[in-house]
């Protein structure tokens, strides 16, 4: 199940982020709930849209220390992770996400193509809690659908 509902689809083959688009103005928002930051959208209808699945790496970093709650450490021990900011060309915005595990920061460079996948954020006895992550394009099989 999605760790938080309404932010992304769970389509196994073509997962997408769910954003908002101002119908007349054409601005995009992610998440959709943040629509309104463009003053030219006042009174505009905000449609739910699926954002592009691929984009260019805007920047990236690592999390070498466990962040505080509400981050949930998956598994028994904290493992460092990689975070990517990816620029979506059509929507002209930059979206954060973790990078799929198994990809090191040393394999990344600003400008490379990244693709959205669905992966496990953490699990409990009943469920896997899923989230979007970024993977280098061509390695999307690393993500679990």
């Amino acid at each position: 199940m999605a760790a938080v509902e309404g932010l992304f689809t769970l389509d196994a083959d073509e997962p997408r982020l769910i954003g908002g688009r101002a119908r007349s103005r054409g601005s995009y928002f992610f998440p959709k709930a943040l629509a309104g930051s463009d003053p030219a959208c006042l009174g505009d209808e905000i449609d739910e849209v699926l954002l592009s699945r691929t984009g260019r790496l805007w920047s990236f970093t690592t999390g070498e220390y466990a962040p505080p709650a509400p981050y949930v450490i998956p598994g028994d021990e904290f493992e460092p992770y990689v975070v990517a900011a990816v620029e979506l060309a059509a929507e002209s915005l930059v979206v954060l996400g973790q990078v799929v595990s198994g990809v090191s920061a040393k394999e990344l460079w600003v400008g490379m193509e990244m693709v959205l996948v669905i992966d496990v954020l953490y699990s409990d006895d009943d469920h896997d809690y899923l989230v979007w992550k970024w993977a280098p394009a061509g390695q999307s099989e690393n993500g679990e659908g």
């Binding site: 928002f29 992610f30 998440p31 463009d38 030219a40 929507e91 002209s92 915005l93 954060l96």
Partner: peptide, 14 residues
């Protein structure tokens, strides 16, 4: 992309 947001603003229209 500013703290604490998940995405930047979109410059698609502006």
């Amino acid at each position: 992309i500013e703290l604490p947001y998940l995405a930047s603003d979109s410059w698609a229209a502006a």
